[in-house]
Design a protein around this nucleic acid. Structure first.
Lengths: 191, 191
DNA sequence: CGATACATGTAACCGGTTACATGATTTT
DNA sequence: AAAATCATGTAACCGGTTACATGTATCG
């Protein structure tokens, strides 16, 4: 038994994209090749097996389009279970572990939250993410301060890059939180 | 035949660390568990096989310490070939691909450059890295500008995070470049 | 004397990479 | 007619994860 059904960022990305638009494997590959989602492999050896796993787990279903032509395609969309699994996954609490070791997964989850989870969940997601990122940032800064003599210039600079990136992420979370509140509150708020 | 001998960031990290200090597998695990190098697995199932691969490829050699005690340890250090392979790897040209898909590897290479490669190489590494990062940043910004209606708020925000991070990396490269030049030039310069 | 740290391994499993394979359709 | 794009797959290989296994040494 797989630990959970969304076994990788790729599976999460696919399920999320299929929730937005029904797509074929080829369509997904094109998204991964041509958009900002280049972190994901567009190789058939990654995409098609991932689709089969999701289908086997009952999270997506594929229907053959253009059945009688010579170039049919299987277009996938999430099942009810799939949509539920995605929502449950998006709602998982944000941990320090996520911030330190799974930043990409965290951002991916956030990217798909629009429309799938309520605003409160999104807000508290960002709040926790900001807090945990700031906490880890302080750890890193302390470590950087504790380092000095004997440490080569380039090593120290590489560490500084890490600090810069986490600081950027913390600020992004705070800024997005503010933007989100403005986006929701003013008059009635949009879905 | 493996594509190249440094088959993963973990192998690179290990070879680099062993170039700084002779260490055992357990020592390496401790480094990965307790320092900022938490991106690397401290699990024995990752570290010991990686050490064996590096040894098999003749890049490192292990000597048994405390032979006659009941708790001996194998302490590793790079061979001449290993040191040469590391330097060659560090000197590989920086590509757009590296910037887009292997930022971590790039930073890791930079971290180990101190003392192993000459200042010119380090400087041009940073220059290329800055240029390619800025180039990709412009691509991303164009993509972000081209997106708007229909795109959910959270999706757009996630994209903005990516832009923020690349901008941070570009600035880091420029700042570090300036710092490096100051670090080298003023009077005689240090090794 | 129990818990924690030291110290090194193995094995099943898993997802991604790389490369191979096949064929139709559209564009130039 | 050639090249690019559409469209879907398979298979060998690889490194990392997770869990298991074993035993010593030190600290409280």
């Amino acid at each position: 038994m797989a630990r959970h059904e969304l076994d990788s960022n790729l599976s999460l990305a696919i399920l999320g994209l299929l929730t937005l638009n029904r797509m074929s494997g080829y369509d997904l590959r094109k998204v991964f090749r041509t958009t900002a989602m280049t972190a994901f492999s567009d190789s058939p050896g990654a995409v098609y097996p991932a689709l089969r796993r999701l289908e086997k787990d009952g999270l997506i279903g594929g229907a053959v389009e253009r059945k009688n032509t010579l170039r049919p395609r299987r277009v996938f969309r999430p099942t009810r279970r799939g949509r539920a699994a995605l929502v449950a996954f998006l709602k998982r609490p944000v941990t320090r572990e996520d911030v330190v070791h799974r930043t990409d997964g965290l951002l991916l989850r956030f990217a798909f939250m629009g429309g799938l989870v309520d605003a409160d969940t999104t807000v508290s997601f960002l709040e926790t993410m900001a807090k945990e990122t700031e906490g880890y940032l302080r750890e890193l800064e302390a470590q950087l301060a504790g380092t000095d003599a004997g440490f080569p210039f380039t090593g120290r600079a590489a560490l500084e890059h890490g600090v810069d990136v986490y600081r950027t992420t913390a600020r992004w979370a705070r800024r997005t939180l503010a933007g989100l509140k403005k986006h929701l509150s003013p008059r009635g708020g949009r879905k």
